[in-house]
């Protein structure tokens, strides 16, 4: 049994990500790529529309990642988390590049997050 706090892979909660680029810029191996655009959002009662970042693509190349966890530590919005999922093998180099869908699929369950004392569970893609 893999303990919940195991550093098996890095998972993403796209709904928590604000496309701030901190993880991309701090990654020592340059393994994270992020595409985003801005949109104007009008909220009722607001005087003028608000500019928000919208996440278009998020990729981690696990062929480059050295599992240092700096991105997990630095994310101000807990949009990245360690996950005990570890079965990332691929027959091609391109298969090691995981996009939003794959990164969200490994988001740790609430049980794992509680065991690890880290974010997870709440705010997960399946919960929201």
């Amino acid at each position: 049994m893999i303990p919940g706090e195991a550093h098996g892979t890095i998972a993403l909660s796209a709904s928590a990500c604000t496309s701030c680029m901190i993880c991309v810029r701090e990654c020592p191996t340059w393994c994270i790529e992020l595409d985003s655009h801005t949109e104007q959002v009008s909220e009722p009662g607001a005087r003028r529309p608000k500019t928000v970042n919208v996440l278009d693509a998020f990729r981690i190349d696990f062929g480059l990642c050295m599992y240092c966890g700096i991105c997990v530590d630095l994310c101000p919005f807990d949009a990245l988390a360690w996950s005990p999922e570890h079965d990332l093998a691929s027959t091609t180099a391109a298969g090691l590049v995981h996009g939003i869908e794959e990164l969200e699929s490994t988001w740790p369950s609430a049980d794992c997050a509680a065991e690890a004392g880290t974010p997870g569970g709440d705010g997960s893609p399946s919960d929201s």
């Binding site: 790529e33 992020l34 985003s36 655009h37």
Partner: peptide
């Protein structure tokens, strides 16, 4: 490897608004 690749951190949100 740092010379032959663009830094992914240089990307900025494209402004369509």
């Amino acid at each position: 490897a740092r010379a032959i690749r663009d830094w992914p951190g240089a990307a900025q949100a494209t402004d369509d608004g």
